[in-house]
Every structure is written in structure tokens, then in C-alpha cells.
Write a protein that binds this DNA or RNA. Structure first.
Length: 274
DNA sequence: AGGACGACCAGGACGC
DNA sequence: TGCGTCCTGGTCGTCC
């Protein structure tokens, strides 16, 4: 389940390793991942191009090739973008980029084949253009953050809305709201200034914590195909229905919002069954 | 505009 | 043991 922290880790690693490498060939194992571009056009436009940067926008990984070609990859709920030996093959390989001057390839390994690839001519095109506030960008300031609450929808739902703030997934939103001591069902516009301020601080903090944990997880994963690392310790409420709250010992509850699970402590988060 | 819902996909956790 | 069924994640499309 790559959310922003995993995407960030992937992007940093690939950028360092593949910056300025020249594309030699593309191996497309699963053309269904292409969304806005045909296989033919993808090959044509990227032929011989140099990978100038690997960046991130929300949960999208962006491979910036020379000639203003942006490959935006979304992994959805599984998999990663790996650096592999060209002779290796991932279990669920969907596309690989081989480089002329480098004996490694970038491989999209996407177990549940829900991931997508778009080819863009700028970062101001869909699906990137409509994405909301980036938690680690300069634009992440109090004034902009305060605006995302202008809705009657529950705060849980608005934090998941990538067009308001981008990068948070179902797991982190439960964890963040728990840490903020905030009732997930509160309508956005009714969230107090105080609670908004604590969310403003908590979001980057929790994501950073997760990036640090995920870094470990990722290394473990690549080395040994083991799993999880510190991730389990990081979770306080997510997936813990019926367990005691780590703060107060009350039973953790699972509710449904917008068809997805929310986990919360009724006591710490001042939640009533309404 | 926003909600409800289904679709996509695979695999892990269930029940029998 | 094995097989069927349910559930999970993020996003998009559709219908109301």
C-alpha cells in the first residue's frame, strides 16, 4: 500500500541512481497500464531520451525525460518501482525501462494490477494538475491549509480527498486523527481552529515518521523479502478494532465513512455513536 | 456539488 | 486439506 512515504522513498532512491541515464529500451509486459497514451506513442516519444529527474506529485511517481516528457506512474495499492539487474524479473512486472549507459533497469512491480501510467507534456496536465496541497512543499502554509476545511464533508473524508490535500491514504488518516484527538465524523467547516492547527503540524510529522519507518521497511524488503519492519509499531489504531487504546485503554472502534474503514478511540477522540 | 456505489485486482483471512 | 466468499487498498466513472 504505497502512500506518500513509500513513494517518497522510491523516488529518492531512483533519482540518485538513474539521473542523466539514457533510455535504451522499454519492455512493456502489460499494456493495460497505459491510460492516456498508446504503446506506439510511448515508445516513439521516449526513444533515446535522457532521464533528467525522478520526482513525486502526491502519490504519483514522475519520471522526467528530456524533450519535456513526463511519465506519471501511480502504483495504487500494491507494488513498487524497483531498480533491478536487467537479467532479473519481478514477480508482477508490468513495464521496465532499460538504460544505455547503466547496467540496471527501472521496473514497475505491481501485484494488484491497478497501477497506471500517463505520459504528459507538463506537470500542469491531468491527472497531476488537480492535486491539492503538498505536505512538504512551500505552499504548505497555514493560510492554504486552513482552506481545505471549507466543506460539510467529514474531516476524515476531506483528508482523503487528493484534490484538497494530497498524499494521505486511509491508514494515515486514521492515525493522524487519532493523534490529533479529533472525531473523524466532524464536518470540515466545524473543525475548530485549534484542531486545524494541530492537524497542520501533525500531518508532516506523521508522514516523516512513516518515511523513516518505511525506509527501514524498504531496505529489509529488498534484501530479504521480509516485511513490515517498524511499521506495526507505528500503527496505534488502524486495523486494531477491539484492542485497547494505547492512550486510555478504551476499546478501539471501527466505523465506515464513504465506504471505507475508519478506526478510532471513542474516548480520546470524543466520538459518539450517532 | 456531493453522496453512494461499483469497477478494477490479487491475496490473505475466514468459514465449512 | 481445499474450496468458496469476503474484505482491503486508491482512484475513476456513473448515476442520482
Amino acid at each position: 500500500m504505497p502512500e506518500l512515504p513509500e513513494v517518497e522513498t522510491i523516488v529518492n532512491g531512483l533519482h540518485v541512481e538513474f539521473k542523466d541515464k539514457k533510455l535504451e529500451k522499454i519492455e512493456l509486459s502489460d499494456p493495460t497500464l497505459l491510460r492516456n497514451v498508446s504503446e506506439e506513442e510511448l515508445r516513439e516519444r521516449l526513444a533515446g531520451k535522457r532521464l533528467e529527474r525522478v520526482t513525486r506529485r502526491g502519490k504519483y511517481i514522475v519520471l522526467e525525460f528530456s524533450g519535456v516528457n513526463f511519465v506519471a506512474i501511480h502504483l495504487r495499492m500494491s507494488g513498487r518501482l524497483l531498480s533491478l539487474d536487467p537479467g532479473d524479473r519481478a514477480d508482477h512486472e508490468r513495464i521496465s525501462f532499460y538504460f544505455a549507459d547503466h547496467d540496471r533497469k527501472i521496473t514497475m512491480d505491481n501485484t494488484r494490477r491497478l497501477g497506471t501510467l500517463d505520459l504528459l507534456g507538463s506537470l500542469e496536465e491531468e491527472p497531476l494538475d488537480s492535486l491539492g496541497l503538498e505536505p512538504f512543499a512551500d505552499e504548505y502554509n497555514w493560510e492554504n491549509f486552513n482552506e481545505i476545511f471549507s466543506t460539510t464533508r467529514p474531516v476524515k473524508v476531506l483528508l482523503l480527498d487528493q484534490d484538497r490535500i494530497t498524499g494521505l491514504g486511509n491508514i494515515y488518516v486514521s492515525e493522524i486523527l487519532f493523534r490529533a484527538g479529533l472525531d473523524p465524523t466532524t464536518p470540515g467547516e466545524e473543525v475548530s481552529q485549534e484542531d486545524r492547527k494541530s492537524l497542520f503540524k501533525l500531518i508532516p510529522r506523521v508522514l516523516t515518521e512513516a518515511i523513516n519507518n518505511k525506509g527501514t521497511t524498504l531496505n529489509d524488503y529488498q534484501d530479504s523479502s521480509g516485511k513490515r519492519g517498524n511499521f506495526q509499531d507505528f500503527l496505534r489504531v488502524y486495523g486494531k478494532e477491539g484492542d485497547p487504546c494505547p492512550n486510555c485503554g478504551s476499546e478501539i472502534v471501527r466505523i465506515e465513512q464513504g465506504g471505507r474503514s475508519t478506526f478510532l478511540c471513542p474516548s480520546c477522540q470524543n466520538w459518539d455513536d450517532d
